[in-house]
Design a protein around this nucleic acid. Sequence first.
DNA 1: CTCACTTGATTGAACGTTCAATTAACCCTT
DNA 2: AAGGGTTAATTGAACGTTCAATCAAGTGAG
Lengths: 200, 200
Amino acid sequence: MDPEESNRKAEILDAALEVFAEVGYRKATIKAIASRAGLKSPALIYWYFPNKEALLKATIGAIAPAVAQVENAGMIFELPLEVALPMIGKLFLSALDMPKTPQLIRVFFGEAIHNPEVVRPLAESGPLLVLNLLVEYFRRQVEHNHISGHNPAALARAYIGGLLVYMMGKVLFPPLGEGAPPPDEYLNEVVGVFLRGLKG
Amino acid sequence: MDPEESNRKAEILDAALEVFAEVGYRKATIKAIASRAGLKSPALIYWYFPNKEALLKATIGAIAPAVAQVENAGMIFELPLEVALPMIGKLFLSALDMPKTPQLIRVFFGEAIHNPEVVRPLAESGPLLVLNLLVEYFRRQVEHNHISGHNPAALARAYIGGLLVYMMGKVLFPPLGEGAPPPDEYLNEVVGVFLRGLKG
DNA sequence: CTCACTTGATTGAACGTTCAATTAACCCTT
DNA sequence: AAGGGTTAATTGAACGTTCAATCAAGTGAG
């Protein structure tokens, strides 16, 4: 059976995510990851993974599918703005409550600059997925004349940006989060502005 | 006199900014920074700076004041939304054209997670400065009943977020920038939404 | 001569990775 | 069931390299 079989690998991946999130890929040592996983020797990691970079890729690869769980994505296209925008907003901000999200965000930004390829799957199964969904949604809204004179690509980015900055303030760079209202209040404000702003 | 006197120091700081931006603080080696600065020995760096971390701090400290050049910041409070919002937007996006901005953004995000204290001056003299300016601006607009029922802290973050995401797409994480409209078109759209969104 | 500055060589620690050797788990034959 | 043989998992020690930091020896201007 699986439960015992691949325990080690999963333990190592969990430990790696923790350590990577705490100190970053380059500062994270194989030794630290090993001892976090309860191994008595760092060498054991090399029985499961060829090298440190492969461990990073596997860590991200293991979690990316879980991030991509946007269910019934297509049905959003049928919904009016008043429902769709808050829904996507909640989807985004509710991720903050999941235990691994802060870790993932930290790993992502820590590597986004110097290892964009490695970390890309994470973005593609999370924010980029939602962004593209939203672009397509706005495009259809324009097409059906529910809104007019708007640029879907710009709208979607601005909306996602408003949410992203809030998350960055919570998880990434606390000075940015100081003075920010609670999530639901924030979301209300942003949704309100966009709803009125789109009905022009 | 200064011009020759502190040339070396300035050269080292320039080289350090370049290398830090290219490969990140931890991967950047003293040797690489030295040779980038035209030095024949890495040891010389230690005559000007006590250690690598001090070099990073100095690099940021040297550039932060230049970033903070928001002239006549106070006068914005007198301007109506239709003028103030595009102005702040241009201020933000025009930074992309300055040669060192991409480097600074890369250094900032590369260290924001694991060295928030070091990199904080950079944020405080750039985006956080503008953010606080904007919060105060919105607060006064509400106070004077030019807009009502709005949360200044949320509004300002959402607006800055819209701009920030655009910059991140350009400089930090290209996949996010793919499909984005040109700066002026983007800014027009965002400003339009917020202007209409605020007149509720 | 002196002092600010510059250099090549060196040191010592940290780290990723390898490896030979040991132990645990499993399977097959009798 | 028992025992021998094969594979999987695990370990500690060691190697080779990288790199920040130090050092002692220069240089050249005043």
